[in-house]
């Protein structure tokens, strides 16, 4: 079985990672301004765990994902995947990571090359890794994500948002990864389709024994999908814990504000108004 995880190592370890970006100069003189995207982030994701990362725009969650996927390098700190420190590994030694860790992105419009047929999109990771990209495997993947075999002949624009997200998932699963990173995979989808895609991710993670890192701005979605969650704000993790606990009894003031701001049907139907979403009154509820 190719999907044998390496024993005894956490799937992902992030140790005190800092990432600064230089901002484009606005003047010739003076130092280059710097954006501190991550200010010392540490986390550990165990094998087979469903780990959530929650935060609002600009909190650094996308930067963190890119570092874990070795699509970017930290300014300081270490990223260790399945026991291997990838922080300074050159691209040619990242092959194990490129096979074992795959991503699903948020935007179903921009995550598929509009000029490629679906079967070529799905086969791309296989071709890159030098595996034979058989039509058989592509059909198998299409079927796994609930698309018909003839979908392979078409172009991405011929599919709805939810179907494109399925194609993205099929592409991610093609090289039989052990770790799946999903970056806001349902944020752009309609509610009636969101449930389908969440179920699909859930099923595939179970079936294929994947470690899932699920990033979202929506704590309710993360609560449904993940066992454990890290809450990020301004480049730092402010709180980590079992999802149900964090949701029910948030400890950090930011998490409290975040939880109280989420409108839910239950609260609304029991009489909550918009004022109850605001921090001061929300906490007393």
């Amino acid at each position: 079985m190719p999907n044998e995880p390496a024993p005894n190592h956490p799937a992902v370890q992030v140790i005190d990672v800092v990432r600064d970006y230089p901002r484009p100069r606005t003047s010739l003189l003076g130092p280059t301004p710097v954006v501190h995207a991550l200010r010392g982030v540490s986390l550990e994701v165990k094998q087979g765990e469903r780990f959530g990362i929650v935060g609002e725009s600009g909190c650094g969650k996308s930067t963190l994902l890119r570092l874990i996927a070795a699509l970017d390098r930290p300014t300081a700190g270490q990223v260790v995947v399945e026991g291997t420190d990838i922080t300074t590994l050159p691209e040619r030694r990242l092959r194990f990571l490129r096979e074992n860790l795959q991503l699903v992105f948020q935007d179903p419009m921009s995550s598929l090359d509009p000029r490629m047929r679906v079967r070529d999109i799905i086969a791309e990771p296989l071709v890159v890794q030098g595996h034979p990209a058989s039509g058989e495997r592509v059909r198998e993947l299409l079927e796994a994500v609930g698309l018909s075999a003839d979908a392979g002949d078409r172009y991405p624009h011929q599919f709805s948002g939810g179907q494109r997200q399925r194609i993205s998932i099929a592409r991610a699963l093609a090289p039989r990864p052990r770790i799946l990173i999903a970056d806001e995979p349902v944020s752009a989808l309609d509610v009636s389709v969101r449930a389908q895609v969440l179920n699909l991710i859930s099923d595939l993670v179970d079936e294929l024994n994947l470690t899932l890192i699920f990033v979202s701005h929506d704590l309710s979605v993360v609560k449904h999908v993940c066992d454990r969650v890290a809450v990020m704000n301004a480049g730092q993790i402010v709180e980590t814990g079992p999802t149900a606990d964090v949701y029910a009894a948030p400890q950090h003031p930011y998490t409290q504000r975040l939880v109280s701001a989420i409108p839910t049907l239950e609260r609304a139907l029991s009489g909550a108004t918009t004022t109850d979403l605001l921090p001061s009154k929300g906490e007393t509820a």
Partner: peptide, 11 residues
């Protein structure tokens, strides 16, 4: 908008 900002704007 972000959730916390949404709360304020809705109110």
């Amino acid at each position: 908008l972000d959730v916390t900002v949404q709360a304020l704007v809705l109110d």
